[in-house]
């Protein structure tokens, strides 16, 4: 195993022999181990059914692990879910939020749900501006928002929670190039603030752009895990295709 550990203290997100077998017998995650440290973006690359979303769901305790554990700030997400989830923010693919609420109202609700009560209107506005939503749309109902705008709103919610770790499930899926670019800049600034970010994505280019550690997943297993520095100068797409081909060949044999 290639050492991808950082020296930035204890891991904020950690998967230890994490496995999940669904009721229908499908092994979605097979003894996965990884750690995400403060100020680090960990990108999980893989096709559909690779196990990326399952891993995130295990960190959110939306499903129970078959074996192993997922830790947030050293707290077991399965055994102490409420305590663990207080330390993590989440942005999902295709953020929908409440269409009858404005961006401000959506933010207000999720921020309070996240346990923060001292957030004022100015704070909400500042974060919405930070994610690229202009003042004139802050009081518009979300049903009139584009997908990119909703995604920005979801990121604003995650930022406002101000949790030490962030989970992103396909966050750039369906975003136009400009929105994708803005999102990456935002992610970089969050990393610079010391957040530990675990991101699942299909988007090799975005992953290469922002990730500190890249893990390629297939059939519930991490088949490659490398530091971005190790991968610099290499064509990540080619590496991905090589690993996928190699693993499939291995599986077939």
């Amino acid at each position: 195993m290639i050492n991808t550990e950082s020296n930035n203290g204890q891991p904020r997100l950690q998967a230890v022999d994490l496995s999940k077998r669904y009721e229908d017998g499908v092994l979605a995650l097979d003894s996965v181990n990884f750690s995400v440290y403060p100020g680090q973006v960990f990108a999980m690359l893989g096709g559909n059914g690779a196990g990326k979303t399952t891993a995130i769901n295990l960190f959110l305790n939306l499903i129970e692990p078959t074996s192993g554990e997922a830790f947030i700030q050293g707290i077991s997400a399965h055994r102490e879910p409420l305590k663990a989830k207080a330390n993590v923010a989440f942005v999902s693919e295709n953020v929908m939020l409440y269409p009858n609420f404005t961006a401000m109202q959506n933010l207000e609700f999720f921020v309070r749900l996240g346990g923060k009560t001292e957030c004022g209107t100015d704070d909400l506005r500042a974060v919405l501006r930070r994610v690229g939503l202009p003042d004139e749309v802050h009081h518009k109902r979300l049903k009139g928002y584009s997908k990119g705008m909703r995604q920005k709103c979801g990121i604003a919610i995650a930022i406002l929670k101000d949790a030490p770790a962030i989970l992103l499930d396909e966050p750039t899926s369906g975003l136009d190039p400009k929105a994708g670019f803005d999102f990456i800049r935002l992610l970089e600034s969050l990393r610079d603030e010391g957040k530990a970010i675990l991101m699942s994505t299909h988007d090799i280019f975005r992953a290469r752009e922002v990730a500190d550690v890249v893990a390629i997943m297939n059939n519930g297993r991490i088949i490659m895990q490398e530091n971005a520095s190790t991968l610099s100068g290499k064509d990540l797409e080619q590496v991905y295709m090589q690993y996928m081909a190699g693993h499939n060949l291995e599986t077939a044999v």
């Binding site: 959110l60 305590k83 989830k85 993590v88 989440f90 999902s92 409440y98 269409p99 996240g114 979801g154």
Partner: peptide, 14 residues
């Protein structure tokens, strides 16, 4: 269906 349940339960809400 809206995806808000997953987002809500990602918080420390019993």
């Amino acid at each position: 269906e809206r995806g808000t349940l997953r987002l809500a339960l990602a918080n420390a809400v019993p």
